[in-house]
Design a binder for these strands. Sequence first.
DNA 1: ACAAAAGTGTTTTTTATACACCCATGC
DNA 2: GCATGGGTGTATAAAAAACACTTTTGT
Lengths: 255, 255
Amino acid sequence: MEPCGGWDKSDPTALKASVTPRDRLADFKVGVDNAIFSVDVAENRVLVLLVQRRREPAIGQWSLPGTLVRRGESLEDAAYRVLAEKIRVQQLYLEQLYTFGGPGRDPREAPESFGVRYLSVSYFALVQHEAVQLMVEETEDIAWYPLDRVPKLAFDHNEIVEYGYRRLRNKLEYSPVAFEVLPETFTLNELYQLYTAVLGENFSDYSNFRSKLLKLGILSDTGIKVSRGAGRPASLYRFDYEAFEPLQDKPMVFI
Amino acid sequence: MEPCGGWDKSDPTALKASVTPRDRLADFKVGVDNAIFSVDVAENRVLVLLVQRRREPAIGQWSLPGTLVRRGESLEDAAYRVLAEKIRVQQLYLEQLYTFGGPGRDPREAPESFGVRYLSVSYFALVQHEAVQLMVEETEDIAWYPLDRVPKLAFDHNEIVEYGYRRLRNKLEYSPVAFEVLPETFTLNELYQLYTAVLGENFSDYSNFRSKLLKLGILSDTGIKVSRGAGRPASLYRFDYEAFEPLQDKPMVFI
DNA sequence: ACAAAAGTGTTTTTTATACACCCATGC
DNA sequence: GCATGGGTGTATAAAAAACACTTTTGT
């Protein structure tokens, strides 16, 4: 992400360190923070899941749901665990986002201290908004926030949200994530709404979106018609995993 | 720049729980492994920098240059430090790649080591091959390997190389990394060779590549001609950072 | 002169964009 | 009937891909 110019950062103490390297190594606790997104199609907006911290540090502040990694637990397992603690959902997409791991924000992590370091591996998740059930406890607030109304979060979680949203837009354009988060059958308009909510109103007009997606040949018409209020009933489509398979390594654009 | 986790760092309620979560947290050593790529334009191939391990575990096996993170050292600093220990180079591009952190990925995680986990934050780097000076010590082998001849590496490093190469191709297509790794002035053919080596012979023909890049308006002709052996002398171009700036957030394709 | 590399232009095909218009339903 | 959302087609512009051709050098 950031190009780097001069790099003469060689540590003068490196020589000394090589004598007793073990003692100078940092000890880490590793945390996982999830940027969980969903799309509220009705309101045409993207939401992110926040929890209110009920412990120090940053008690009372909103933050991303996170946890420390336990013995024998993989990073991804930890991510799934926090997720399961906060929401119940059938379908979801999850992938690693970025790792934030520097010292220096916390005075207790001063270079010569013996305190442990805390590293955060962030994960990006996308869930189907309508199907999510929040696991609200009395002691903890948990809520969906529209992206444009996210408050100041604890730590640097605002940055993680930003980063995650960028990833969301890229994923929508270049991968079939949308189908991970749609019901098994859906109308093309529902798909279009999803894209519109994330990418903005002007990303493409509906009829061009239709033809482009249908031409890809990865959607199959179930033939079943469904009526959403007034107007002509729409066809229900299904994502065709078999047809997608051979395309999966090739770059593709879902605009 | 580095957020800490959203998890708590000292949990008083945890201790009175029947299963004490604090004790069940994993303790980590965090390592940084660099996938350092360069392009040998003359031989038309992509190279990755490997070192032969001098210490346990996996002694004698080839691996990516890596190190454990020290107290007070950021992840990126650690990445720059290993880099500086292995090579000397003026220009480079470096960014975080992925974090591998499953239990059991490092043999040092044996039971008798009291449950310490080894986590690897990998970094992707691209350097100018001609300008690199390898820091060869008597005790350590260090070498450039063509991608198609990379041996079985220690740990999960083959996977990291794969992942890094994928990143390299994407970066070349959608960002101006190439210019980070080219001399300040270069011929369009040198640029083309770089792209060809990474993306393969058939990614575009030379004349189309030329017109496309020139039409972007981010290269300025210095007017200086230079003769590479036989044939008509080529113009030296320079990457125009000012002209690129307004385009930098927009998606762009360098194919 | 001629091979080799640089550089220009033209033609064809494909893709993107805008938008006009028909279709099927609820009220 | 007519408003509403679903769906098809067409006309134009832009971009990608293929390739023929000219220019300038070394030998």
